[in-house]
């Protein structure tokens, strides 16, 4: 991971903050971008990324590979990603344990994969296709989930560990997603974190969610639109000593606040890390 260590905490780069970051050059360990937003070399996004890449290490976070689809990964998408990777040399490339497209329709959402033997086999094939094409390792993120399939062969943590074991890919552990899924699907977030193979975790995501009230009860929605919740900070803190070789990222995508708010969350994460590493 280049010169990155567990004490490094980055933020997600969003267009609203381009100019401020470029002009004020705040101390940030790394910036993470949604790869698809930078596929077009002639776009304003790409122009800013070129400038910011001179100041900051980059990680690429994709939402379009649709690794869980029962069909091969789009060659066109892969080609564009490879070109972008060659240009910017990110220290991490990630996507999700989910599917988002099916037979020519793209749903722009991270849809749940059934944790079956068949889905595992397909997921492994797709990851191998991506890693072979990019000639580098990728890391895979656990999703937020709102529903569960009846027929499954694995729990999610085991499914992720198997994928990592069989493909050599790394894991991106989103602690907010673990909390959201555990609350919605009534399982123990801590037990999930006990099962995850932290040796494979190369990045931790922290983000905010909302609580949506229905007449029937409450569901947590992973919106990336709020401050990181106390229970998520508690999970981060309680498991921080398991982190071997992972950086941390503050994610915020909707209702974007001032850059200073993101940096405040970054500082909070760094404080937790300092307590463990005694830096």
């Amino acid at each position: 991971m280049n010169n990155m260590s567990i004490t490094n905490v980055g933020i997600g780069l969003r267009a609203e903050h381009y100019q401020e970051i470029h002009q004020t050059s705040p101390a940030i360990d790394f910036l993470e971008v949604h790869s698809e937003n930078y596929f077009d070399k002639n776009s304003l996004n790409y122009f800013y990324l070129q400038q910011l890449s001179e100041q900051y290490p980059l990680s690429f976070h994709g939402i379009g590979l649709s690794l869980g689809s029962a069909e091969a990964v789009s060659k066109n998408h892969l080609k564009q990603l490879k070109t972008l990777v060659a240009e910017f040399n990110p220290f991490l490339i990630s996507d999700h344990l989910s599917w988002s497209s099916w037979q020519g329709t793209y749903f722009n959402d991270l849809l749940p994969v059934p944790y079956t033997e068949e889905a595992l086999s397909r997921f492994i094939t797709n990851i191998n296709q991506v890693q072979d094409h990019l000639q580098t390792q990728i890391i895979v993120e656990n999703p937020s989930s709102y529903l569960e399939y009846k027929n499954t062969d694995y729990d999610e943590a085991t499914f992720l560990n198997e994928i990592s074991e069989r493909t050599g890919c790394g894991l991106l552990l989103d602690i907010n997603n673990v909390y959201v899924s555990a609350t919605n699907n009534n399982f123990s977030a801590q037990q999930y974190l006990d099962e995850i193979n932290f040796n494979k975790v190369q990045e931790i995501h922290l983000a905010g969610h909302i609580r949506k009230q229905f007449a029937e009860g409450e569901i947590l929605i992973d919106t990336h639109s709020k401050l990181i919740s106390d229970p998520v900070w508690q999970l981060y803190s309680a498991n921080i000593n398991k982190i071997k070789n992972a950086v941390t990222l503050i994610e915020w995508d909707a209702e974007l606040p001032a850059l200073s708010v993101l940096l405040g969350e970054r500082d909070k994460a760094k404080q937790f890390l300092r307590e463990v590493t005694h830096d």
């Binding site: 059934p114 709102y146 529903l147 569960e148 399939y149 009846k150 027929n151 919605n184 699907n185 009534n186 229905f214 029937e216 009860g217 569901i219």
Partner: peptide, 14 residues
């Protein structure tokens, strides 16, 4: 194909 969740129908979750 979806598990029932207490209080919610599968359609609500979808």
């Amino acid at each position: 194909q979806l598990k029932e969740k207490q209080g919610f129908t599968s359609q609500q979750l979808l």
